Amino acid sequence: MYIAITRQQLGDNFRGSVQDFVNYLEKENEGKSMDGQELYFNQEENNIDAERVIAEIDANTAKLGKRDPKFYSLVISPSQRELKHIGDNPEKLKHYARKLMKAYAASFYRDREVTVKDILYFAKLERERTFSERDREVRENQPFATQILELKHQIRDMERVEGQGNIKRLQDKVQVLERDAPHQQNGKRIVPGMAKEGHQSHIHIIVSRKDVTNAHSLSPGSKFKTSETILNGKREKQGFDRDQFFRAAEKTFDKHFGYRRNFVETYHARNLLDKDPKRFFALLLGLPTSEKQVARQLLFKAGVRVPTIPGNKVQLAYKALMQLKRGIGKAMESGTIGI
């Protein structure tokens, strides 16, 4: 399970409205009839249209400055293994999202309990994901992409001057490079923006920064960690416990759907990789044989090759360990192994 929390982007062309983001999320609905479109949902309702989402999020911004984020975005991206386990069932995924938002509310650190009834949010299911520059397949295809681009520039230059150079020879080189690129899908070189095969369902959630009463700020931003502050002479709790939220998200999925999570899929493993990679590797090697085999398969699919080292030799050379960490880190960032 890969979950990302990001704040509203505030650039030079700042717009306080959520409209641009909602328009982006409508991309899969383009060209479809109303019956075939995927609409928004929240904790209690289904089939909410985009106009209502924009109106309610934009109206819920009391006392926020021009440069304050008005909403946050959550992306819930189950791995293909998790999606296969639930049959890529959209209703199950929506049900999980609603349970997840209960955990989201409970992760706020406040003097009073925050529940999902305090949260103003709208969620939307999407069925497609595309390759980005962060994906291993794109990165490993990049040397071929660079050569292909250079050859195409040469071909265009030759076409401007009739009779200059052998265009057919360069075109043949392009075809060879296209064919020899290591990562292909349906006979075509994988490039950024290409739709991914297989189960790709995920959910985007737009969460207002203000609660449903438009009176209290509820920010999950990384800088708003659990702490206490003095406000009007009183000590008050503030912040959002991301660790608690991510652990609850994982536990909720596993318990509700009976999912048996491998070590390398866990939030605990990701934390270990960041803070103590040597311990991560030691635990990986110490897994029972069957679990270790699954872990290796998951990492191999993500493009990470784990050195075959006897379990009693966990003092891996520092350089090799850092290479392993970088490889797994990139796989995690792209959601390939779903942590």
Rank of each mutant, 00 (worst) to 15 (best):
N141I: 06
I48Q: 05
K168T: 15
L39N: 02
R110I: 03
F21H: 14
I57H: 04
D111T: 04
A50N: 05
F41Y: 07
E159L: 07
S107W: 07
T61F: 06
N141G: 04
N166T: 10
A55L: 12
T115R: 11
P90Q: 03
L64H: 05
R136G: 05
L83T: 00
V114C: 01
D88F: 05
K84A: 15
L64M: 02
F144Y: 13
K70Q: 13
F71P: 03
N29L: 03
I167H: 09
P143G: 03
Q147C: 05
Y72I: 01
S73H: 14
L151H: 11
Q43I: 10
L151R: 13
K66R: 13
S73G: 11
E91M: 15
R127S: 11
R139C: 04
V22R: 03
N47M: 12
T146Q: 15
I119N: 07
D58C: 01
R127G: 05
E82S: 04
V116K: 07
E140P: 04
K63Q: 09
K92M: 14
P69R: 01
D88H: 13
R127M: 06
F41E: 00
V22L: 00
N46Y: 11
I76C: 00
R98S: 02
S107L: 04
L149I: 09
E82K: 07
Q37V: 05
D88I: 09
D135F: 01
E91Q: 15
N60R: 01
R67N: 14
D49A: 05
L100Q: 08
